[in-house]
Computed example of a mutant assay.
Amino acid sequence: MDMWNDDDWRGLTGNAQGLYLKLLTHPTLTYCGVADWRPGRLAKLTMSMTAQDVIEGAKELQAAAFAYVDEETEEIFLRSFVRHDGLLKHPRLSISMAKDFAAVASPRVRGFFVWELKKMFSEEPELKLWSDRRLQTILKGRSEDMKEFCRTSCQGEVKGLGQGLAQGFAMDDPKGLANPMAKVLPCDSMPTTTATTTSSKEDTSSSEIADAIFRPDVEALLGRLEARVQENGFRAPARTKKNQDAARLLLDRDRYTVEDITAIIDWATSNEFWRTNIRSMSKLREKIETLKAQATRTQPQSVRADTPVDPNKVLGADYWTPGTPPEGLSVDQEVLWAKEQRARHQEERVAEAKRRLQRV
C-alpha cells in the first residue's frame, strides 16, 4: 500500500499503473521480480486491451524506472519488488530467490537485481539470509543502477507514445542499439523501415504497409503456438518476421481461418511425433497440408471420466511450482498447503488433458 504515498507512482497513467499491478500478481513473476514479457498474452488478461496498450504502459514504466524490459530475452523486471515484497524477511525463501536468479537470462536485468540486493544489504545487514553462500555469491556479481540507466537512456520522459506497434515491430535488426529495449520500446520515436527482402517470392508479395499493421489475429495465433510449445517443455519460438509472415500468409494467402489454424496447432502439439517437430509458425505453415491430412484421418476418441490419463504425455512436462505460501503458517502447515496446491494443479492438468484428447 506504500505505493500510493509515492508521487512518482501517482504520476503514472492508469494504463501504466494497471500493467504494473497486473505484473505483480502474474503467475510467471519470480522471487527476483522478473516476469515473462509477452505483450499479446498480457493484453488478453483484460477485456479490450491490446498489445499496443501493454507496450505503451511498459514504455512509461521504464521511463519512470519502475520496470525494465529486455525484449531479446522476453523478460520484464520490477525494480522494487525484492525490496517491498518481504521476501528477504524469510530466510528459507532466499534459496528459491537464488534459483530464480540463476534462471534470469538478461545480463542487464541480472545487474539491476544485484544492485537492488546490495542496497538492501547496506540498509539491513543484520538479516539472517546474508549468511547464505548463494546470496553472498550473488552480491559479488556485477551490478548496475537501473534508475540511473533509465534516466540517461530516456531522460525521464515518455516519448513516442501513441506511435503504435508498427514502429516497434519494424525494427528487425537490433545491431548497434545501445538499449535492448529500443527494438520494441524506444525512448524516441522511430521511423518505420521497409519490409525486409527475402529469397522467397511468396513471402515478399505483401506490401510494406501490410507488414507494419498490427494484426490481432496473427498475434493470437503466435501466442497459441508459443503456449503449446512451452507446455511441451520446449523453449517458445521467437516472434521473428519469418514466423509473423507465416501466420499472416496462412490467413491471407492460404485462406485458413483462425479456428482452422488453432485446431491444427492443438492437434500437432498433442501428437507424439509432430509435437517435437512443429515448434515455429514457419514450420507449421510448411507442413500444414500434411498435418491437416493426418488430423482428418485420426478417429475421434471418447474419453470416459474414469479413464486414466497421463497429463505429461498429453500436455508435456510440468514445471509448475506452488509459489509463496500465505504468511503466518508453520513449517508443517506450509508443507500441507503446498501438497494441496500440487494436488489441485494435478487435477486441473488431468481434466485439461482429457479435454484435448476429446477434441483430437
Rank of each mutant, 00 (worst) to 15 (best):
I264R: 03
R142I: 15
R248C: 05
R151E: 11
S200N: 10
P180G: 11
A246H: 05
L161A: 08
R248F: 15
Q244W: 10
N243P: 09
E219R: 07
L225M: 13
A170W: 06
L161M: 12
A166Y: 01
K175M: 14
Q167L: 11
A210P: 02
T193S: 04
P237C: 04
D252F: 11
A212E: 03
G156D: 07
M181Y: 05
T194G: 06
K159R: 13
E219T: 10
L249M: 10
P180N: 10
N271T: 02
E144F: 15
M171Q: 09
A212N: 05
V184T: 12
A182Q: 13
T204Y: 15
M181V: 15
P237R: 08
D260Y: 00
T196F: 04
E208L: 00
F234T: 04
K159C: 06
M181C: 12
E219F: 03
S270W: 14
T152Q: 12
F273R: 09
I278M: 05
A236T: 06
K241D: 03
A268F: 11
A212F: 08
A238K: 11
G141E: 14
V158R: 05
S199N: 11
D217H: 02
D145P: 07
Y256F: 07
S270T: 08
S270L: 11
Q244V: 03
G156V: 01
E208H: 15
T194K: 06
R239L: 12
R215V: 00
N179L: 14
F234A: 01
E148S: 11
R142H: 15
K183P: 09
I213K: 10
R279T: 15
E272C: 05
M190C: 11
R228W: 14
I265R: 06
F169Y: 02
T204K: 14
R228Y: 12
E231C: 08
D203A: 09
E144M: 14
G223N: 06
D260L: 07
T257S: 09
N277G: 03
W267A: 02
M190L: 13
A195E: 03
D203W: 15
D203L: 11
Q155M: 13
K159L: 09
A212V: 05
A236K: 13
E272L: 07
C187D: 01
Y256S: 02
L177N: 13
I278W: 00
R215Y: 11
N243K: 08
K183Q: 13
F214M: 08
Q163C: 05
D260W: 01
A246R: 06
K241H: 03
G164A: 02
L139K: 14
M171A: 12
A263K: 12
A236F: 00
G156P: 10
R255G: 12
D245H: 12
S189E: 01
R215I: 00
R275L: 09
K175A: 13
D245G: 08
R279S: 05
K242D: 07
G162H: 00
K140G: 14
G156R: 10
R253N: 05
S143A: 15
C150N: 06
D172Q: 00
F149I: 04
A236E: 11
